[in-house]
Amino acid sequence: MSDLTVLVLAKAPVPGRAKTRLARVTGDEVAADLAAAALLDTITAVAATPGARGHLALTGDLRAATRGPALRAALADWRVTPQRGRTFAERLVAAHADAGPGPVAQVGMDTPQLTPDLLLDAVDGLSSYDACLGPADDGGWWVLARRDPKVAGPLAGVEMSTPATYDDSRAALTAAGHRVCATTVLRDVDTVDDAAEVARLAPGTHFAAAYRAWEATR
């Protein structure tokens, strides 16, 4: 799809601020490195998606981030805008408004196993539906595809990062009159167990290499 925008909502992977659940086990520096590796993998997947352009909605400062130079180089051709809003849900809706009309697939930085096929599968649903949500196996969701940025509006009132976030998001969208389809279930990286499984599933990623390097030191 030649006019596809992939919108990535991300936090700059700064030690002490990134992947705090992972950091309880790995320490701040390793957690930030894993987060940076996951973001690099996401950027790589977008770059490999035919016809796609990248838009990063960022909170934090990449100049203070782990792997900051590599991230800034990878984002050279991207549009980068600051996140706006008090809650994550509000920032998500604002990012969709900033991305504008047209086909958009919005993801985060917790799925380094992302591939172009996964992105395109989500967008394919827009031929018959107003939105496509990809469930995460922890009860959240990893992708929202839509054409009209107003589709994301009902999500402003949804509590994110709960075991019911996918169900609540889908209910909010359908209550607003939007037709919603589902796409592939993926595993988010929040814990060390998540990290181990995702590294196993996607062994050629920056994330898997970073995880193996940490695991070798345990």
Rank of each mutant, 00 (worst) to 15 (best):
A76R: 15
F207K: 00
A145D: 12
S169V: 05
A156P: 12
R72P: 15
A52G: 11
A94M: 09
S2V: 11
G204E: 10
A209L: 08
F88K: 11
D190L: 07
V30L: 06
L75N: 14
A10G: 11
P154Y: 06
D193M: 03
K150N: 12
Q113M: 03
T111A: 07
P82G: 13
V192M: 06
W78Y: 10
D61W: 01
A12Q: 10
P50C: 08
Q113P: 07
D188R: 14
D168L: 08
F88I: 07
A45D: 06
R24A: 10
Y166W: 09
V158C: 09
Q83M: 13
A35D: 00
P149W: 03
G100T: 08
E90D: 13
D33K: 05
D98V: 05
K19G: 01
H206F: 01
Y211Q: 01
L9A: 05
S127R: 14
R91Y: 04
R200K: 09
D148A: 05
P69R: 05
A97F: 03
R86I: 13
W141M: 09
E215V: 00
T184Y: 00
P13W: 00
L9G: 11
L4W: 04
S169N: 08
A209C: 03
E90W: 01
R212W: 01
R21T: 12
A23H: 01
G134S: 07
R200G: 04
L126N: 11
M1L: 09
T183Q: 04
L34H: 08
L40T: 02
A47S: 15
D130F: 09
L119G: 02
A70F: 02
L9D: 07
R179A: 13
P112A: 00
T111Y: 00
L56H: 14
L9R: 11
A131T: 13
L155V: 10
A48L: 04
